[in-house]
Amino acid sequence: SEIVVAMYDFQATEAHDLRLERGQEYIILEKNDLHWWRARDKYGSEGYIPSNYVTGKK
């Protein structure tokens, strides 16, 4: 599975969105859409994140 790191904070506005915290790692579950990826955080929460807010883990 692909691990990404959040470059920016993202506040979830929709129920299906996942909040991003800058510097935290997330697991990508689905990339069915170019701009919104389904991800899981370290607490096990899942939701959609803006793909341009994250970068591949170095």
Rank of each mutant, 00 (worst) to 15 (best):
N52K: 12
G23C: 11
R40T: 05
A6E: 00
S45C: 14
T55R: 12
I49P: 01
I27V: 13
L29Y: 01
A15Q: 11
G44K: 04
Y8R: 13
I3S: 06
K42Q: 12
D9T: 06
K31P: 02
A39K: 00
E14A: 13
Q11Y: 13
T55E: 13
N52M: 10
V5Y: 09
W36H: 06
P50C: 10
K31Q: 07
T55K: 12
R38G: 03
G47K: 00
D41H: 01
A39M: 02
L18N: 02
L20I: 04
G44L: 03
Y26K: 00
S51R: 08
I3K: 08
H16L: 09
D17F: 15
M7C: 14
I27C: 09
D9L: 04
E25K: 07
Q11G: 09
I27H: 08
N52W: 13
K31T: 05
E46P: 01
E14V: 10
G44H: 04
E21T: 09
E14N: 15
P50D: 05
R22C: 10
Y8W: 12
K31F: 05
G47H: 03
I28H: 00
G23R: 02
V4T: 04
R38W: 15
K58M: 14
N52F: 10
E25V: 08
Q11S: 11
D41S: 03
T55W: 07
D33M: 08
K31D: 05
M7Y: 05
W36T: 08
D9E: 06
R19S: 15
S45R: 15
N32L: 12
E14W: 11
G56Q: 14
I28T: 01
I3M: 08
V4A: 06
Y8D: 05
E25R: 06
R22P: 04
G56Y: 14
E30D: 12
H16R: 13
Y8E: 08
K31A: 07
L20C: 03
V4S: 02
L29G: 02
K58A: 14
Q24K: 08
R19A: 13
V4R: 02
G44M: 06
K58T: 14
I3E: 05
M7L: 15
R40L: 09
R38T: 09
Q24M: 10
V4C: 10
Y26P: 00
N32E: 12
S45I: 12
G44S: 03
Y48C: 13
V54Q: 01
F10M: 07
H35A: 09
A6M: 00
N32Y: 11
K57W: 09
W36Q: 07
E25I: 09
D17A: 15
A12W: 03
A12H: 05
Y26W: 01
D9M: 04
Y8M: 12
N32M: 12
